[in-house]
């Protein structure tokens, strides 16, 4: 625990159930995430990680139970969340400049017409913080995967939220970019709560204070508790990932019992 930790709650989930087309995805979820925590959401594909994220963002509604994000409903606190989607899902030919992408973080501040000067300054500052100031005029499609990832983080920062949520940020980027990403996140964690979804458990222990295991059930552990036993329970089977050093393919995580 560092001095920056507070006793405030960033996310509180109480007795939550969620089913999709009659198939239960999440059951009886209770979770409390403290402000300035840094946590990693792990679990097998189809285990409900993305669903949990979308519930917190208010993109999905729970069937039962309730969610409080930054002391409000998810819909109301949405604007105070910096969300970083997977960069790989974007149309690679879409003609948009890096600065225009980052300015989207300020979209709620204008109704029509051009962005105000302070919006441009915030976007440029966020780009500079990610070390990308000189890419502002480039096309988003032209830059590398790792750079696109950081542009999307800059966009989330430009929104000036309290909570940063990243969906699979380590998918499709090389080792050096991943290293760099975690250095940046560690710095941002000094002022923001950081949540990250991954199915790459290996690095979980390096940076995160807590780990949330999602496989229909949701369990929060301090990182120090992450053991082979725990991972086996979570993935519901005998798995080989422990020998996988710190990077492994999605297939490497799961043997059976995965939808």
């Amino acid at each position: 625990m560092t001095a920056a930790s507070t006793t405030e709650t960033a996310v509180r989930i109480h007795d939550l159930d969620f089913a999709y087309n009659g198939t239960p995805i999440l059951e009886n979820v209770n979770l409390e995430i403290m402000a300035r925590d840094s946590l990693c959401i792990v679990g097998p594909n189809g285990g409900g990680k993305t669903t949990l994220l979308k519930l917190i963002l208010g993109l999905l509604k729970p069937d039962r139970g309730d969610i409080e994000v930054l002391r409000q409903t998810p819909e109301k606190s949405r604007l105070h969340i910096g969300y970083v989607p997977q960069y790989a899902r974007f149309d690679p030919q879409f003609p948009i400049t890096v600065l225009e992408v980052v300015l989207m973080g300020r979209l709620d501040r204008i109704f029509c017409g051009a962005y105000a000067r302070q919006d441009r300054e915030a976007a440029e500052a966020a780009l500079a913080e990610m070390g990308l100031a000189d890419l502002a005029g480039r096309l988003f499609a032209e830059i590398s995967g790792g750079q696109r990832q950081r542009v999307l983080i800059a966009r989330a920062l430009a929104a000036e939220g309290e909570l940063l949520i990243l969906d699979e940020p380590t998918a499709n980027i090389d080792a050096a970019s991943e290293e760099h990403l975690f250095e940046l996140l560690a710095k941002l964690n000094e002022r923001l709560t950081v949540m990250l979804v991954t199915h790459d458990i290996g690095f979980a222990s390096k940076f995160f204070k807590s780990i949330v295991c999602v496989n229909r059930q949701v369990v929060l552990h301090p990182t120090s508790e992450l053991t082979g036993e725990l991972i086996r329970n979570m993935y519901g089977g005998d798995i080989r990932m422990i020998r996988h050093d710190h990077r492994c393919s999605p297939e490497g995580h799961c043997s059976h019992g995965i939808s």
Binding site: Y83, F90, M104
Partner: peptide
């Protein structure tokens, strides 16, 4: 022209635009 940024955002990343209250 008036809603250039809204249309751009909706075309490029609809989900994110929704999260920004659009």
């Amino acid at each position: 022209v008036l809603f250039y940024h809204k249309f751009l955002a909706v075309c490029f990343d609809e989900e994110y635009a929704r999260l920004r209250g659009v």
